[in-house]
Write a protein that binds this DNA or RNA. Structure first.
Lengths: 199, 199
DNA sequence: ATGCTTTTAACAAACGTTTGTTTCTCGGCA
DNA sequence: TGCCGAGAAACAAACGTTTGTTAAAAGCAT
């Protein structure tokens, strides 16, 4: 009954083309604002043809969101558990996050905005993964305060949400082919955000 | 031919009830994810009955977004053109923004996330108003740098987007009846964000 | 000729909206 | 007080379209 989980292959093939088109459209128009016919047009195929490669519209969203969160966690979590000081680790996490956004801003838009439309069966897992991600930042923040590196009087919850808010908004304005590289943008944001919490 | 522009009345009446319900649903499920039947159910009325009070689904969005942006501009713009130092003005703008969000987080979600779904006739005006709003922050930022109050080496564009990103994300987590008042949350965020740009 | 993929056509359901009619509320007049 | 008509609101039903999805037939490789 439980079908094999379909994995997102970065390789070629019609399946990857569909997923890329879905990322673009879900990011631009939202999940509920994108129809299967929109998607088929973008791919260059008739609507029914899509179902030879996908299970359902929602399965597309599940795969994009799950894979997207995975990329963020994979890129950021090692720094959270790293060896350096909390300050350096937080800086590295911010840069890594921006780099993942720059790699594909549309996917990031889907990950951060469209996850609400996951069905009841896949939503809990996605929320849990998001909390794992937020937990990385909270952990480093707590350690920073514990070591006297961050201002003790800051509200940790609000500081984390401030940082995550700034980060989550980046796909709205970041252009991967702008003058600055993702690494430079990330460093500038880290500079700005870190000074707000340093002791 | 041009009908009178319908104004958002804070007063009672079925029209206000519809607008409030639309704010809640558009904020939670998105504009395209909310059907007229959803809205009618929320109001407690049959779908067709709504059209005695509204012109169309899109007209609802137009009114909510236009009124919402207006509230933010009204609350923040005076501080941008105020007499104090750029530092104090930026702080006051951040606090004012958070206060408007706290006043109605759902409306803020619609303003910042759903404006994309405005039709071609109303979208340009909304974008222009948003740019006016962003311009307030850019202006103060420039003056702060000009007066040597803000670090000259910061990238002003990125600093503004970092601040606005943190602010635009607040409706996702801010609860108006939490332990902290909106004014306190705004002050804490301003503290965090301002130290990142101070010279 | 056997497997994929696409096309074609259609399905039931949900979409935004309009219509004609009923129900409710309330002020004025006898 | 009792009746009446006016206005506002909601109902019930349907409209044409679009939605996600499917089944059968056709195309095309190996």
């Amino acid at each position: 009954m439980m079908a094999d989980v379909q994995r997102l292959e970065t390789g070629n093939g019609p399946r990857a083309a569909i997923l890329n088109a879905a990322m673009r459209l879900f990011g631009k128009q939202g999940y509920t604002g994108t129809s299967i016919r929109d998607l088929a047009t973008e791919v260059g195929v008739l609507p029914g043809s899509l179902y030879a490669h996908i299970q359902s519209k929602e399965a597309l969203l599940v795969e994009i969101v799950a894979d997207g969160i995975h990329r963020f966690i994979t890129a950021v979590e090692p720094h959270a558990h790293g060896a350096g000081s909390p300050v350096d680790r937080l800086r590295a996490m911010i840069v890594a996050h921006v780099e993942v956004v720059a790699e594909n801003p549309e996917r990031s838009l889907v990950v951060f905005h469209q996850w609400r439309f996951l069905g009841e069966s896949s939503l809990p897992a996605a929320i849990e993964r998001r909390q794992v991600y937020e937990g990385c930042f909270i952990k480093v923040m707590e350690e920073g305060v514990g070591q006297g590196l961050f201002k003790p009087e800051i509200n940790q919850r609000i500081a984390v949400f401030t940082i995550l808010g700034a980060l989550n908004w980046t796909p709205e304005w970041l252009s991967p082919d702008g003058r600055l590289t993702a690494q430079e943008v990330g460093s500038l944001m880290a500079e700005t955000l870190l000074r707000g919490v340093l002791a």
